[in-house]
Amino acid sequence: MSKPKLAIFDFACCEGCQLQIVNMEEEILNLISIVNPVQWREAMSEESDEYDIVLIEGSITRPEDEERLRRIREKAKVLVALGACAAGGGVNRLKNTLNLQEAKETVYGTAANMPHLNTSSTKAVDEVVAVDYKVYGCPIDRREFAYIVRCLALGKTPEIPGYPVCVECKLKENVCRYEYREICLGPLTRAGCGARCPSLNTWCFGCRGSIEEPNIDSAKEVVSKYGKTLKDLENRIALFGSK
């Protein structure tokens, strides 16, 4: 059996998720032993239009990018949204809370009306094309990524946590951030990062995106009990556009 061909494409994002693939360090040699990278602009000059697995990094913010993405989807057998930007819109989703014209003026001042600055709202990849798998996190977790690639090579659906960060946080035996009166989004956020932020003595701000059926009503009750306002909660939730 020949190795599946892998291509990586990036859209509006910080390219930090691709960097995590480089950050696999020695294991990148293992990675290329089971998949064959044929196109990866950030790291390679080789190019190819033939690929089996496509990783899409970044969120989609312009009509021309939607076009490009559709062309990629047509050729891809398996399409994976890589990282928060691709999987849910990521931090770029904050833009959707803004008035676009004002945002342009804020950033570009008098140049704001130049046509090449036009963008639409931020979309996750699955708002444009069908997505087969999602790798969560901002950035992605390289161990989880490695696991997912192995699953894909094996033809198995990866088992990604659907439960909230609190689970991993408890397993790590952290002192809960609510005891410090911080707004932690752990109860609303998909686990898989090993409760990284609470383990580093700070709140989770939701970079792995929302779990299914997050209990926002409860979060509202909780923050008011800890002397915080609804706005504090909403502001934190807005960072990664969780539900």
């Binding site: 930090g16 970044g58 913010t61 833009k95 945002a103 950033v107 600055l117 963008t119 960072l239």
Partner: peptide, 23 residues
């Protein structure tokens, strides 16, 4: 593709700005 970070941080809390702009 421009991302408008300078607009996105407006109105955000001082405690959240780093989490935004690092990205």
């Amino acid at each position: 593709a421009p991302r408008f970070f300078e607009a996105m941080v407006k109105g955000r809390s001082w405690q959240d700005i780093q989490s935004i702009v690092t990205r």
